[in-house]
Amino acid sequence: MNKFLKMHTAEAHCDIPCGVYENDTIKHAAETVFKMATKMHDLQKPSSNASPEEWVAYHNTMSRYVMVKEEYAHVCKEQILILWTDFFKPEHLDQVPDLHDKVWKTTKLCSTAKREGTVESAKKLKAAVKEIAEIFEKVQGSSATYEY
């Protein structure tokens, strides 16, 4: 299909800056990545004399864990970038001077969690996301632009 059908992009965006932002999505996404990484780590490999069905079940379960981990690491990265570009304003840098660096590092951790799939990388992501979420709450509390 890739060879004879060129890929286009269709947007399904909301173009209106609604001013409604939240940090639940990034926390939920990071938690999901962590849970999936833990399950991947804990999943027992079939024994050497396991049946083909057992191997299929193992690979199927592992694939599903990986798929969900990838999906939510992507959601996490995307939602952090939305907060960064749409919610945070230049004046917020007065309160959080290293905001750009924190966002940059946290989004990189999303990629690391995808690439490595380890519990350790997922744990680092979760901690970094928690920090971004706390910054969001702190800034939101003092922001006149936030609307309910």
Binding site: L5, K6, M7, H8, T9, A10, E11, A12, H13, C14
Partner: peptide
């Protein structure tokens, strides 16, 4: 026929 990648949540 055409292929499209969807971006956004609408």
């Amino acid at each position: 026929l055409q292929r499209y990648k969807i971006t956004g949540y609408s």
